[in-house]
């Protein structure tokens, strides 16, 4: 009798614990997602109306002018195209070169294998830091060029470890037979390694692409003349409210066209525009990326 009641009690306690956990986690999920909901609501709201406050979940007075303004804004479109170009060029070149390096340090018969591995591995722990790197970029005349977006990122030691651990696990016979047939190393890399190691290439490409899309500081550090401003930098400019109003004032024509605009809604709309691409790749992120970090933590 006593036993039943105590087990009933513990199952009740367990139930309550379950409910408490669910409540805590739902709250947490809400805290994570709410800022985006609020920005989304603001971005679709009439500007003057939004300034009155009180918009929480849904737009009160629906308006698309913030987006209309954004997509007629040449500066934003330019920023967007630099960002896209940077992501594509930066990701492809980094993937190709770091992948090649990873393949080379996975060739078991290669005498320089260990040397190359250590040479790049060391860069994970030691670096010259901000200023020596900055001076170097100046000396190489890489500042205020598009090249600074991808050349310094061609090789990445962390990606190298991830990719090499995957490639080393592939059966050696795969490459050996191609070698006997007389294929060159580059050809083997392009024709065999890349297709077979696609999962790790996909994982790393998502890492790299998100990094390129999100980067902000290297743009303001190296490309200070504003010619190659990316979307993040443009968004940052809008943050400073003055700039936003100035943008509107500068464009008299747009001003007449979009009378219901405010820095608040414009900022919200830009933030959404910058965030949406991340959310679009999110499913892929989940598929490859999560596998990638657990792979790294086991083998790294």
């Amino acid at each position: 009798m006593v036993e039943t009641s105590s087990s009933m009690q513990s199952s009740l306690a367990s139930r309550l614990a379950d409910i408490a956990i669910i409540i805590v986690l739902v709250l947490l999920g809400f805290v994570v997602i709410y800022p985006f909901i609020n920005l989304l609501a603001l971005s679709f709201n009439d500007g003057k109306d939004a300034a009155r406050g009180g918009i929480y979940f849904f737009p009160r007075k629906l308006s698309f002018s913030a987006y209309g303004m954004l997509f007629e804004n040449k500066k934003l479109l330019k920023g967007l195209s630099w960002s896209v170009l940077r992501v594509i060029v930066g990701t492809c070149t980094c993937l190709f070169m770091t992948g090649l390096l990873s393949y080379i340090i996975s060739i078991r018969t290669f005498s320089g294998r260990k040397f190359m591995r250590i040479l790049f591995f060391m860069t994970m722990y030691f670096s010259g830091g901000l200023i020596p790197t900055y001076i170097l970029m100046n000396q190489l005349h890489l500042t205020n060029t598009f090249q600074v977006y991808w050349i310094p990122g061609l090789f990445n030691a962390y990606f190298m470890l991830l990719m090499a651990s995957y490639i080393s696990d592939l059966p050696e016979a795969l490459f050996e037979s191609a070698r006997i047939d007389g294929a060159g190393e580059l050809r083997i890399y392009w024709r065999i390694v890349i297709p077979v190691a696609m999962p790790v290439f996909a994982a790393v490409s998502i890492y790299a692409a998100v990094g390129h899309w999100n980067s902000w500081f290297d743009v303001i550090l190296y490309n200070f003349n504003g010619k190659f401003d990316t979307l993040q930098v443009y968004l940052r400019r809008l943050l400073l409210e003055v700039e936003a109003t100035q943008q509107i004032r500068d464009q008299q024509l747009l001003m007449r066209k979009f009378q219901d605009l405010s820095p608040l809604t414009l900022r919200a709309a830009t933030t959404i525009v910058v965030t949406v691409p991340i959310l679009c790749v999110y499913p892929f992120l989940q598929k490859y990326f999560i596998g990638g970090i657990t792979l790294g933590s086991v083998k790294g």
Binding site: P35, W213, N214, S215, L239, T271, V274, I278, Y282, L285
Partner: peptide, 11 residues
């Protein structure tokens, strides 16, 4: 984690 600091600052 995948959102840039620029966006976080904006939020």
């Amino acid at each position: 984690y995948f959102i840039s600091w620029v966006v976080v600052a904006n939020i």
